[in-house]
Design a protein around this nucleic acid. Structure first.
Length: 559
DNA sequence: TTAGAGTTGATTTT
DNA sequence: AAAATCAACTCTAA
């Protein structure tokens, strides 16, 4: 979804008289049951931006709706293409899809290029370096394997022009009317052009709703460079200590704090009135950065390929090796470390069969999770009765985004911490609703949080009351996403059931009426979960892990 | 076999 | 704010 560092585009343009940039809108990724509105909107915005960026280079984007395994071969035939170029994709669905396309292209005697640039390294090269071709499940081992491949490949130079989309000669295959190109594909294509959300069966979104950053390469690169321009932020970045409740707190700081009583100004409104506001003397940031959460929020751009991981890596590297030399955080916690975590999970996902499942997954602990629908729905809908958990789930539903540590908190709560529900159920909800949902990262992190792989200290449980409170004493984050708790005194905002009834009435939030009772007693529930984990781990040690099965049956999203 | 490390715990003590 | 304590997991390297 970009024109920078795009080796497939470069390969397509080399010695070509005419290049047709195509994006196929696969109905598989467009179903409201499986894909949340925020991610689809981000995709559509990214397509619009890609089209504009191609236009600036003398070309344009052709968007075809349909099954890629039918549309692409039909297009190759109709347009008499001699070469097909696309980015390598290592997800199971993509591998199946691309193999089918590749075989048909072979039959048509078409030259195919499928270079790797979505990850820092070509995953096949990384996997070849792994003992027994099995990816390590420890980050430190991964770092050694990665460094054995030498430095990360440099980004592909950006092309200044792209050979014409339409042949000037009046070829019957390259009509001047692009839409007729699609009509030639017949029944394969169900439409063309960039659709609206409504056309895809989604409700339209107000601009103030959803993930606050707009999709696209242009905005992604701007955001990347704005991030790297904040030198102190980059130098000191340590992921585990970033604040999951921070949404506009930097802005709040700029206005002298809001939680210490007095008249509370809406920081967003205030900033609009004071466009000259700066957080730090040398910090020339826009409103967008002032509104930024504690992490970079670049993940959706990485997921869609709006921003190249290699571009991110090398621009970061230049900064770390020059201006910030010797005075910056380091992997695994640093910003560079985050890019390497992504790479780590991509390698694990690529090298592990059934990476998105417990059963048949070589690296995943077998644990007797339940598919308790009632518990799952309460969690999914943010009705657990724990404000910190519920606020996070409401943020997910509304915006399609949560801070990494909020994801930890809700994932731990659903699985090994409190509810003992199958991690696959939680992963499916994240996969549907997150703007940055990513097969490798999502499933990998769910295994991590559920102590199924990568992380095994199951006795370390996040507190559904204590964890959020650590950063946000006043509960501003909770109040934002759970307005019914807006007037609850800070003392009770994380555990409203402890408030005396007259306090609840005064706050306009009576537990059991306006907000649910906590669905479990955390102390009891977590103790029971730890015991279950201990017993499953014991069975694993004794070689009896395979006898363990989940309880109940897998849910189908959308039902 | 064993010591030490492991991006992101909670709580109490210093 | 940092360290100790709680209990005790796996993986890696020696």
């Amino acid at each position: 979804m970009r024109v920078h560092d795009n080796p497939a585009l470069t390969a397509a343009c080399a010695d070509a008289s005419s290049v047709i940039p195509v994006f196929v809108l696969d109905p598989w990724f467009m179903s409201p049951d499986r894909v949340g509105v925020n991610r689809v909107r981000f995709l559509l915005e990214s397509l619009k931006d890609l089209d504009e960026n191609l236009k600036a280079k003398g070309s344009k984007l052709l968007v075809i709706h349909g099954d890629p395994t039918r549309v692409i071969p039909a297009a190759l035939r109709e347009w008499q293409c001699t070469r097909l170029c696309f980015e390598k994709d290592t997800e199971p669905y993509a591998l199946k899809r691309d193999t089918a396309v590749l075989e048909l292209a072979k039959k048509l005697n078409i030259e195919v290029h499928s270079p790797s640039s979505h990850t820092l390294y070509d995953l096949e090269l990384l996997l070849a370096k792994c003992p027994k071709k099995e990816p390590p499940t420890a980050y430190s081992s991964f770092l050694k394997i990665a460094s054995s491949l030498g430095s990360v490949p440099k980004p592909e130079p950006t092309l200044s022009t792209i050979p014409v989309l339409i042949d000037s000669g009046d070829s019957k295959y390259l009509s001047k009317d692009v839409s007729s190109l699609v009509e030639m594909l017949g029944s394969c294509a169900t439409g063309h052009g960039i659709p609206s959300l409504e056309q895809l069966g989604y409700p339209s979104l107000e601009i103030t709703e959803g993930f606050p950053a707009r999709g696209g390469e242009t905005e992604g690169l701007r955001r990347l460079r704005a991030t790297l321009g904040q030198k102190n932020y980059v130098a000191e970045f340590k992921k585990p200590s970033t604040n999951p409740t921070q949404l506009w707190s930097r802005l709040t700081e700029a206005f002298g704090g809001s939680s210490s009583g007095g008249t509370k100004m809406n920081p967003f409104e205030a900033a609009k009135k004071n466009s000259s506001v700066k957080t730090e003397p040398n910090d020339n940031v826009t409103l967008n950065e002032l509104m930024a959460p504690a992490t970079t929020a670049l993940s959706p751009y990485m997921k869609f390929g709006c921003v190249s991981a290699r571009t991110f890596y090398w621009e970061l590297h230049d900064l770390l090796n020059n201006e910030l030399k010797g005075k910056h955080s380091k992997p695994p916690e640093s910003l560079e470390g985050q890019l390497l975590w992504r790479e780590f999970y991509y390698l694990c996902a690529f090298g592990t069969k059934n990476f998105d499942k417990m059963e048949g997954n070589r690296i995943c602990r077998q644990i007797p999770w339940t598919w308790d629908e009632e518990r799952l729905v309460a969690w999914e809908q943010g009705k657990t009765g724990f404000p910190w958990i519920d606020a996070s789930m409401h943020q997910l539903k509304q915006e399609g985004w949560m801070h990494h540590l909020s994801r930890h908190a809700v994932a731990c709560f659903l699985t090994r911490g409190d509810l003992f529900v199958h991690w696959e159920a939680g992963a499916a909800v994240f996969d549907r609703d997150l703007v940055d949902a990513d097969y490798a990262l999502n499933n990998g992190n769910w295994m991590w949080l559920s102590c199924s792989c990568f992380f095994y200290q199951y006795f370390r449980v996040y507190g559904p009351v204590s964890f959020g409170k650590k950063w946000d004493k006043n509960g501003d984050y909770v109040r934002k996403y759970l307005p019914q708790l807006k007037n609850m005194p800070a003392k009770f905002v994380y555990e409203p059931w402890l408030a005396p009834i007259e306090v609840q009435r005064k706050a306009g939030c009576v537990v059991g009426v306006d907000y649910p009772h906590p669905m479990v007693d955390h102390a009891t529930a977590s103790k029971e979960c730890i015991e279950k984990l201990a017993s499953a781990y014991k069975a694993h040690k004794e070689g009896k892990g395979r006898e363990i099965k989940a309880v109940g049956s897998k849910r189908k999203l959308g039902e």
